[in-house]
Each structure stands twice: as structure tokens, then as C-alpha cells.
Design a protein around this nucleic acid. Structure first.
Length: 488
RNA sequence: GCGGAAAUAGCUCAUCCGGUAGAGCAUCAGUUUCCCAAACUGAAGGUGGCGGGUUCGAGUCCCGUUUUCCGCUCCA
């Protein structure tokens, strides 16, 4: 990572705060780790990205519908999904090698070694003691067990361990107002399960036929071991997910389809293709058949923005097992091979999952530019401009009377009233015109319209384009449609 | 998690060896202004991250603490 890129990233973070995009969370209390708040322009941009995604998924795909499932879900959900068992383990670090181990794996490996050495009784006793301590969550006892058995790190060969800590991927809380009687439930670590548990509800009520998809956006929560890099890795974040249900045997072609379609969505925002790349997973998660990431070249390197996973029938089968409800679909289409309907089956799933906050950061990183301008007289000037795609810019149009008298504000206000029902506008009559243009550049407003004395004579205004800084004279009556054409 | 650095006005930064806290930009009020941040007048803005110590006196020296950044580690 070059120093220049690093500085650029710092500048983006500073700009984000200065211009009301992203603030550190709970800042007046010294902040809260890895939590951020979106400001006036940030919340607009975030909403616009979400809407753009939602529209591209639901409005433009007749076979995809949306839901909005609750963040709280029945605890059995996370048993079924594997989150409870896979992400709830006591961990221990070796101070010399700085390698991290799951405590049970470490002890089990040692027991296996004892067995090899012909000490099966000792191995058995060790495992029994471990199970007893694990069930009591006795971390001090477990550490003592490791030390007294002289279990060493495979890398450093030393027995120099940290205290045992529990790594909890999921946040828990209490459901029920009376604490004693309340049950522990989790804040969802992914939105996908809300889709899976509603699979039958959606399929039946919206009368969906396979292949079809269910889309959802929403908050999810994860404890991260290290949270850094601004909004890239947060404990509270928002996902935009779509689960696409297909007939078993067709998952390969649908995986290819969505892999391609999702990259196309990114490119549709006008971001250069060379900033993107695929990263195909070699090591796959327990549920996956095929998986890839769409990576973007952030100021701190290529990083994952979106994942496309072929999840097989893992999730629905697991929910079928835990809920004892049939998570199946009757496919009435005729199978050419047999001449009969495909019949009942658990559908296979292709998942597309994109981090809204990461997409936001992607847009900020792509858009931010410190530009040096050479003026007509040869002198240079600089501006900070956010080249945010018109479709998702927080403010679409700034309406600026050149002066605040001679009836210019009145004309500007009329234009404001005409346009504000269609898109977000910004009115300003303060300061010199150049200063107002620069302020709009800094928040990424693609169009500025200036009302001057000539407007009173011939109903024309100056429209000024953010990226080129070019100006042209257009009819006042054209303004609304020009902006609408650019943002739809 | 480990190591290093930093924290002064909304922002960027000064304040030399410990002696009353300063500028530019931004903000606010007004004047001026017909197209790219740069005109004029005035105003407001600070418990120097927080807590302790040394000292007649601390933004400045020492200790602690919090936060942030950098590197390594970890994690998807």
C-alpha cells in the first residue's frame, strides 16, 4: 500500500465526516469501537444505493420478490444454520507464535497424540476432564488443564499461553421484559436466515414458481476480532441479500448467471471494470458448492464487496430437520427425461450477498478526487469533488440565484417547488457563486442551475455540470426533465 | 492482541529553553458582488482528549487512561 493511497484513504474519512456523510459512533463519549453513524448526505447516499439495488433485484426481475424479516429470530434458527456451533468456541493464543487455537481442538489434538504413544487411558481422562470444564465454561480450569499437560503450540513449541477467551460471533440479548424469565436470543448475524425460514410463506402467498428469488436488505450484527478500516468492517452493518431458489441440477448455470449479473450491476454505475475482480474460493464453507467474491480495489487494496455462493440445499434441509416442517417445493414442470413432473424436492440456493456499508465505501473511494484546475488565465486552483454516479447522488440539483435580490430568489423558489417532488434539491443564495459550486462538488451534486438577470428576460438558466465544470444555457422549463433523464 | 506515533477553535496547523493561547479557512450578522472557494466591516468560537504528579507557574516535563493512525498478528 503506497503512502499516497494511504493518505487518500485518510482524506476520504476526513471528508466523510466534514461533509456529513459518516461520523464516528457516539463520538462525544470517545466513540464506540467499529461503530459509525451516517449523516445527512451519508444517509441519503446509503438509501439511494439500497434503493438502486432493490429496484434492480425486484422491479427488474419479475421472479424476485422482497421481504423484510425481523432481526430477532427463534434461537433454533442459529442452531440450524450452524452459527451457534461454529462460532461460539473458547479460543486461546500462543504468545510466542501468536497463533490462535480453538481450545477443544488443541486439547483433542494432544489426546490423539497420547493415544498414538500408547496411553489411551490418559487420553480418555484428558478428554473427559475437558468436556466437564467446557460444560461449566470454566476457562481458568481449561487453561490450567492445558498447562498442566504441557500442551505446546505446534508452531512455537512453547507453552506460553494467553488466558482463554470466548469468541462470540453473535450478540445476544434477552427476549421478555422480566429478565429472570427471559430467554437468550441473538441479533441475527446474517439476513439470509430470515429468507429461508419464510421460504414457504413467500412461495405460496406470492405464487412463485421455481426458479425464483427472495430479496432482503437489513441490519446484521457480528462481533469481529479486529474491527478497523472505517466502515469496511463494522459490528453493526447492513446487508443486501438475494436467495435464488432453483431446481437441483441447475445450480451450476444459475451460479454462473448471477456471478456475471452481479458484476454487471456494479459496472452499471459507471465504475471502471479494472477496479473489479473475481476471487473464486478454493476453500469452501461447510454449506457451499461453489463460491466467489466480487472484489474492489479500495485504497487499502482489493477487498470483498459482494459474495456469490452456491449454497446447495443445506439451509432448507437444516431448517426442515430442526423445525420438522417440510421445506419443499412441488415442481409441476415435466422432466423431459422421464416424461413426468419433477415432483417434490428441497430447492437448491444461489445466494448473492453484498455489504451495503462496503458498497457505500466503494462509492466514496471511487468518487473522491482532489482535482487541480488550470484556469483561463493560466493560474491553478484546486477542488475536492465527489464523482458520485448521478443515480445515487445525495442531492441531484442545486438551485442557485446569482444574487439574492432583483426577484432572482423568487424564480429560483418556483423551480425548487417544481422539482422537489421528483428528486432531492438544494437551494442556496449565500456567498459567491464559485463558492457555492465548490460546496456542491464536495457533496457530489451532479447538477447546479443558476438563475441570473437574463432569466427574467428569456427564461433561460445556466446549468453547470459537476464533473466537467462545463456550463450551458438551457430553458428553465427543461431543467426538471434533464435531471430526471440523468437519474432514472 | 503486540509494538510505534499522535491528540491544541468546526477544519488544517502554529505557539522556540516551562511564563496570560495564535493564524488561515469555515461559521454568524451586515455591506458588496452577473458565473467557479480569494472584496469589505464586525461578531462568535478554547477547562490544550481525560485524570493525576513535579513546579511559584504546565499545552509544554513525568505517570496513568481513552481515542485515533501506522506496522505486525488475527478474522472472512
Amino acid at each position: 500500500m503506497s503512502t499516497q493511497q494511504e493518505n487518500n484513504f485518510q482524506a476520504i474519512i476526513a471528508h466523510a465526516k466534514e461533509y456529513g456523510f459518516v461520523f464516528p459512533g457516539s463520538e462525544i463519549y470517545d466513540g464506540l469501537g467499529a461503530v459509525y453513524d451516517y449523516g445527512p448526505y451519508g444517509s441519503e447516499l446509503k438509501k439511494n444505493i439500497r434503493d438502486y439495488w432493490w429496484k434492480s433485484m425486484t422491479q427488474l426481475h419479475e421472479n424476485i420478490v422482497g421481504i423484510d424479516a425481523a432481526i430477532f429470530m427463534h434461537p433454533a434458527t442459529w442452531k440450524a444454520s450452524g452459527h451457534v456451533d461454529n462460532f461460539n468456541d473458547p479460543m486461546i493464543d500462543n504468545k510466542d507464535s501468536r497463533k490462535r487455537y480453538r481450545v477443544d481442538h488443541l486439547i483433542e489434538a494432544h489426546a490423539a497424540k497420547l493415544e498414538e504413544k500408547g496411553q489411551p487411558k490418559e487420553a480418555e481422562a484428558l478428554l473427559q476432564e475437558m468436556d466437564a470444564l467446557l460444560s461449566k465454561d470454566d476457562f481458568a480450569g481449561l487453561k490450567h488443564l492445558i498447562e498442566s499437560n504441557k500442551i505446546v503450540c505446534a508452531v512455537s513449541g512453547t507453552c506460553n499461553w494467553t488466558d482463554i477467551r470466548q469468541f462470540n460471533l453473535m450478540f445476544d440479548t434477552k427476549l421478555g421484559s422480566v429478565t429472570d424469565e427471559a430467554d437468550t436470543i441473538y441479533l441475527r448475524p446474517e439476513t439470509a436466515q430470515g429468507i429461508f425460514v419464510n421460504f414457504l410463506n413467500v412461495q405460496k402467498t406470492a405464487r412463485m414458481k421455481i426458479p425464483f428469488g427472495i430479496a432482503q436488505t437489513g441490519k446484521a450484527f457480528r462481533n469481529e476480532i479486529v474491527a478497523r478500516q472505517f466502515i469496511f468492517r463494522m459490528r453493526e452493518f447492513e446487508q443486501m441479500e438475494m436467495q435464488f431458489f432453483v431446481r437441483p441440477g441447475t445450480e451450476g448455470e444459475w451460479y454462473k448467471y448471477w456471478k456475471q449479473a452481479r458484476l454487471q450491476w456494479h459496472l452499471s454505475l459507471g465504475i471502471p471494470a479494472k477496479k473489479y475482480r473475481y476471487h473464486d474460493h478454493v476453500k469452501l464453507a461447510h454449506y457451499a458448492k461453489e463460491a466467489c467474491d466480487i472484489e474492489f480495489e479500495f485504497p487499502f487494496g482489493f477487498k470483498e464487496v459482494e459474495g456469490i455462493h452456491s449454497r446447495s440445499d443445506f439451509d432448507l434441509t437444516r431448517h426442515q430437520l430442526y423445525s420438522k416442517k417440510k421445506m419443499q417445493y412441488f415442481d409441476a414442470d415435466i422432466d423431459a427425461a422421464t416424461g413426468k413432473p419433477y415432483g417434490n424436492y428441497v430447492p437448491y440456493v444461489i445466494e448473492t450477498s453484498i455489504g451495503l456499508d462496503r458498497m457505500f465505501l466503494l462509492i466514496m473511494a471511487h468518487a473522491y478526487e482532489e482535482e487541480t484546475i488550470t484556469k483561463e488565465d493560466g493560474s491553478t486552483d484546486s477542488r475536492v469533488v465527489m464523482h458520485i454516479p448521478e443515480k445515487i447522488a445525495p442531492i441531484k440539483l442545486a438551485i442557485l440565484p446569482l444574487t439574492k435580490k432583483d426577484g432572482l430568489p423568487e424564480i429560483a423558489r418556483d423551480l425548487m417547488d417544481e422539482c422537489k417532488n421528483y428528486f432531492r434539491c438544494f437551494y442556496e443564495e449565500k456567498d459567491a457563486i464559485g463558492k457555492r459550486y465548490r460546496r456542491q462538488d464536495a457533496i457530489g451534486t451532479p447538477f447546479c442551475v443558476t438563475i441570473d438577470h437574463q432569466t427574467k428576460e428569456d427564461n433561460t438558466v445556466t446549468i453547470r455540470y459537476r464533473d466537467s465544470m462545463q456550463q450551458e444555457r438551457i430553458l428553465l422549463s427543461q431543467v426538471k426533465d434533464i435531471v430526471i433523464n440523468a437519474i432514472v
